[in-house]
């Protein structure tokens, strides 16, 4: 019983981590808590829904939805944030812009599509489940775990093992200096937006598959959890996001199992607030140096 719950927690946590990867990358590089991120998640899920309803198989719908979400993210970043970035506006301005934008996007989507929960066509993925040692895990869950592990590995490799990653990190550290060194920061920003948006979109597809519930506001409830994950993991910290995501999943499942299922969100946010109070830079983060 406990073992199954821990496994469920781990699986839930993997969805959170998957969602939070792109979110934390966006913050780490672009220095913006981009709240439109949750919308790319919704967008990915809907795109996959429409594509599969039109008869596309999952192995095509998933990458197509991810790429399209990435493009939407790049477009929105350009529309909303380039102006502020160029003006050197403070991070609160960007936070507010994305806050307003995401509210408009969710509400607009709800007005257009209605708040109903949609389901993916049946039979997209083998419905079977693996059972061993009395534990049960579905195929969709295995897919999420695999995707999560793969994407964390890829991101870490991209950031630490490639020249592109070096340029991205240089830009994250000192955007002005990086620009002087001939790094095309605008193009890199677009690239990072694309990668993050694609991650969010892929997350939306996979998580939509897992819970089989797609609706406009799915990104918002995920977003609020994304906060918890990226703050607890340290803003911009990819590995921290993974650990924090898993931790959050386990805590939520255990809260639901042993206290009350209604309280699991409150516990998640209590965790967020406690971490902020005691370690403002997150459990795995170091405080950003501030210039006096």
């Amino acid at each position: 019983m406990l073992a199954q719950q821990l496994l469920n927690g781990l699986l839930l946590g993997a969805t959170y981590a998957l969602f939070a990867l792109g979110f934390t990358l966006m913050f780490g590089v672009l220095r913006v808590v981009n709240l439109t991120y949750g919308f790319y998640f919704t967008a990915g899920a809907f795109l996959a829904l429409w594509l599969t309803q039109a008869g596309a198989p999952l192995f095509l719908a998933l990458p197509a939805a991810a790429i399209a979400s990435g493009l939407i993210a790049t477009l929105l970043d350009w529309l909303l944030l380039t102006r502020l970035r160029r003006a050197g506006a403070d991070e609160l301005a960007s936070l507010m812009v994305t806050l307003g934008a995401v509210l408009a996007l969710y509400a607009g989507m709800t007005a257009w599509l209605g708040p109903d929960i949609r389901r993916l066509p049946p039979g997209l993925i083998a419905a079977g489940a693996l059972e061993a040692f009395g534990l049960r895990i579905t195929l969709a869950q295995i897919l999420i775990l695999a995707a999560c592990a793969l994407l964390v590995g890829l991101l870490l490799w991209l950031m630490r093992g490639t020249r592109l990653g070096l340029a991205i990190r240089a830009m994250a550290e000192r955007p002005d200096t990086a620009a002087l060194m001939g790094i095309a920061t605008a193009r890199l920003a677009a690239l990072v937006s694309f990668v993050s948006g694609a991650l969010a979109g892929a997350g939306g597809v996979l998580i939509g598959l897992n819970f089989n519930a797609i609706h406009p506001y799915m990104g918002e409830s995920m977003m609020l959890r994304g906060f918890v994950v990226i703050v607890v993991g340290g803003l911009g910290n990819i590995f921290g996001a993974l650990v924090a995501g898993l931790l959050l999943g386990i805590i939520e499942v255990l809260t639901a199992g042993y206290i009350s299922s209604g309280l699991k969100e409150a516990v998640a946010f209590a965790l967020l607030v406690l971490v902020l109070w005691t370690r403002p830079a997150g459990l795995f983060g170091t405080t950003l140096a501030r210039k006096a």
């Binding site: 609160l92 936070l95 918890v228 409150a266 946010f269 209590a270």
Partner: peptide, 26 residues
């Protein structure tokens, strides 16, 4: 909470709001 700066304060206050909402719900 007020030791926090900028986005951290914004996030913490959103979090506090959600905690309270959880309390009302439960």
């Amino acid at each position: 909470t007020l030791r926090l700066n900028g986005v951290y304060l914004a996030i913490a206050t959103i979090g506090l709001g959600e905690v309270l909402r959880g309390v009302y719900l439960n």
